[in-house]
């Protein structure tokens, strides 16, 4: 049954020009083109985004929770506890990595920048030094930069403009008696 399941992709959205791409959730799609199209429908129905990144979930590596680092000798470095998240990238010669930080448990992972590293461990260590100043409880995701797929800049209007006219998706479109305003 699992053989036929489409790959899982993690979705990151830039909500406004100038802000970081932030993790919003995941979805299944056959390839990155479909993942971007689906991400647009699932995660940006109300002008939540101006740019979408998708990354195949098994390409993302993560730090172990701080309090558990000592407990597990070999970190699997998969983002979830899925049995399928074991793939490691093939060639790892001083490649560029993108770094996503969750500054507190409960918040989304946010893109903070990129770095060069020869392997996953070095990428996570460098990210820890460079981007977190070793703050406790911080979770780090790293992914090789070429694994990020973004929508084309010239698609931006076609993808995100239509949501602007859909005012009926917002609560304020429905004028109700004042007594109900808490609804």
């Amino acid at each position: 049954m699992n053989q036929k399941e489409w790959p899982l992709w993690e979705v990151f959205i830039r909500s406004k020009q100038g802000l970081n791409h932030k993790h919003v959730g995941s979805l299944h799609a056959v390839d990155y083109d479909m993942a971007i199209e689906n991400a647009r429908d699932v995660y940006t129905r109300r002008m939540e985004g101006v740019s979408i990144w998708v990354i195949e979930s098994n390409q993302i590596h993560t730090s172990e929770p701080n309090d558990q680092v000592a407990l597990f000798e070999s970190a699997n470095q998969k983002i979830y506890k899925h049995p399928t998240f074991y793939n490691l990238p093939e060639e790892l010669n001083h490649t560029m990595w993108e770094v996503f930080i969750q500054s507190k448990q409960g918040l989304n992972h946010k893109h903070v920048g990129s770095l060069y590293a020869v392997d996953v461990d070095m990428a996570i260590e460098t990210a820890r030094d460079g981007y977190t100043r070793s703050i406790e409880g911080v979770s780090i995701w790293v992914v090789q930069s070429n694994q990020i797929h973004a929508n084309e800049p010239d698609e931006q209007d076609a993808l995100f403009e239509p949501a602007q006219d859909k005012t009926y998706r917002h609560p304020t479109f429905y004028i109700l008696p004042l007594e109900l305003n808490h609804m």
Partner: peptide
Amino acid sequence: LAKVQDEAGHGLYLYSAAETLGMSRDE
């Protein structure tokens, strides 16, 4: 239509949250 589409979206947010606990979508 927008409401029903939202419900599809909400189902998908929730399935993806459930998947982080180790059950596949197909299951």
